[in-house]
Design a protein around this nucleic acid. Structure first.
Lengths: 355, 355
DNA sequence: CTGTTAGCGCTTTCAC
DNA sequence: GTGAAAGCGCTAACAG
């Protein structure tokens, strides 16, 4: 048997290695199974033969026996948002560090969510990470019902008990309010969206309540349609056409802030703008670009990813544990958007007195 | 057997469905196998039972028999580049449309490339799509040697014969030169990187040779370190400190162009800047942001993805065919960066005579 | 069209 | 520590 099947490349299997090394299939299997009992001698032989023949364990086959595919689904939406990208990249890396493989499923709205679920289930994924904006309730329910480990990133509590990892949105709003206050702002506005997601909502509420605590009772709202660049622009237009005199603005995400700032920047000579202080959330790469140089509440994606994967693995190893909720700290990154003047067309380096 | 294994959720298998529906396992299998011969009657029964029991085909198991995992590896680097993201998103979508599942592997430089290969091989991927900047020669060789279908995106020809899909870099450079020339530029510069990738190199060469054909013998080079925002900034600084009078600039990628423009924008009052015409390549979302409004050679990622997947599938169905090379058309998207004046602080809407 | 029979490549008791 | 044997869940080849 196994002579050939009109295929030029025949897959080399564990039995080939076994033969070549003069041992049993089991020996081969054990060599490639972490902490299995093999004598150093046989192990050596097996490894040598394996290398020689170019053998690789077939994870698809092994998953059949040990029921661990090591595949992890990442369900993501709004992939244009730079912060989402950072998340996905960090997650992908962290998963691979743990020898897990990310299957990236990009969803738009609540699209063919059932197809997505179907796919994940067909592949017996070891877990699912959901980082889409619109929390697909149905996915949660189905996964939990089927006992598929799942972690929600920055999502609200859902009906079913499921693990969640959150950035501290409360603190984000609070830090933002404090920073604006500390830099002298006494009239505040917030830039958010028409239908903010959970995180944005919490940040907003926290900001407002902290403003209130600081004695600032009124916070003006500007709203983009979506949480994106265009949304920020629209909010900027609203500010421009309003007659309020705003000193400090909290953009609930950097992405919004970019559009907001650019919108303001495009109309030169508005006297109120150069005094405007802005703070936002996330710390996407653009925030540190000199042209924006945006003070922002950093949400560290590396730490986020580490915690997400850690929670996921705990769930995998103990499926029946109570659902965990992990809230990660955030920190203010102070840049020039909350300094003396918001430079609109000045270089950031070299103080240049306003002409 | 199969009574229970202290697990609350027992996986429902094809034999369960078979029993429930009163048919054989084969019948179940056939029902879920495209164009297999099942009577409408049994099919119905099976589907009903399956739905009732919540049965899902186990692709991992089936791949063992039919040798098709439908998993496709996407090897990507430089994931901060918005164009890369667009590509990945488009690929992910297109793969899923074809019922293939993308495993996203983010690599940095030539990192642990062998680990990456190992992973892909262990999962018996149906194919690999490589869209990283640094073409990992070793991956190509190994995949080809092992008969794993592979498609290179925007990569140079490698030693081994492998399918490639390219955007028309020749034409990109040519269109850029022509556009700058047509809008009146007679002194040209190019913004690229220290060690440009294949695409960037071809664009550059094509631009230069087309300039030459137009009678412009000298093209000044500004180079960023990497192909990113900071690279563009550095190129901008080079222009600023040079004493050449440049009229038209070709940035070999939008990402570079963003940094380049922002760098120029940050120094107000440079008289030569407002007359500067800029054209670049890719058409990332930012290119159409009003603050940039960048004329660019669009590289359509949707069409790209369609072609990549199509080529991949052909390779899968005919492994021994000759390696294909597909070159996709590109088009100029004309925006205000090649119109009358490059507005640096004016709004894009409403013609406003230069004061 | 349908059921029976062999495996796919691997892991894992179970004796030795 | 090691090998034999029994599957994991599924599909494909073969009779019927």
């Amino acid at each position: 048997m196994t002579t050939d099947k009109t295929r030029s490349y025949r897959k080399v299997t564990s039995v080939d290695v076994a033969k070549h090394a003069g041992v049993s299939r089991s020996a081969v299997s054990r060599t490639f199974t972490p902490n299995a009992s093999v004598s150093a001698d046989t192990r050596e032989k097996v490894l040598k033969s394996a290398a020689q023949l170019g053998y690789r364990v077939n994870k698809l086959a092994s998953s059949l026996t040990n029921n661990r595919s090591d595949l992890v689904g990442i369900v993501a939406s709004n992939i244009d948002n730079p912060f989402r990208i950072k998340q996905i990249e960090a997650l992908s890396r962290e998963l691979m560090r743990h020898n897990l493989k990310p299957i990236l499923l990009v969803v738009e709205g609540s699209e063919d969510l059932s197809r997505i679920i179907g796919m994940l289930l067909e592949y017996n994924v070891s877990g699912v990470i959901v980082t889409s904006d619109t929390p697909p309730q149905s996915i949660c329910e189905e996964c939990v019902a089927l006992g598929v480990p799942m972690v929600l990133v920055n999502k609200a509590q859902s009906n079913v008990a499921v693990d969640r990892v959150l950035l501290d949105n409360e603190k984000s709003g609070q830090l933002a309010a404090q920073e604006l206050y500390d830099t002298g702002c006494r009239t505040m506005a917030i830039v958010t969206t028409e239908q903010p997601s959970y995180s944005l909502r919490v940040r907003t509420e926290s900001f407002v309540s902290h403003c209130d605590a600081l004695g600032i009772k009124k916070v003006t709202f500007f709203r983009g349609e979506q949480q994106d660049y265009q949304g920020g622009q629209r909010a900027g237009q609203q500010l421009q056409s309003s007659h309020e005199s705003i000193q400090g603005v909290f953009c609930v995400s950097d992405y919004l802030a970019l559009g907001f700032m650019d919108q303001l920047r495009m109309v030169a000579g508005n006297p109120s703008l150069s005094a405007l202080k802005i703070v936002s959330c996330d710390d996407i790469p653009q925030a540190s670009w000199p042209i924006y140089d945006l003070s922002t509440i950093r949400q560290d994606t590396t730490i986020l990813a580490q915690n997400v994967v850690s929670v996921l693995q705990q769930r995998i190893s103990n499926p029946s544990a109570a659902a965990a909720v992990k809230i990660l700290d955030v920190t203010l990154v102070k840049r020039s958007s909350t300094r003396k003047n918001l430079r609109l067309e000045q270089p950031s380096q070299g103080p240049r007195s306003s002409s």
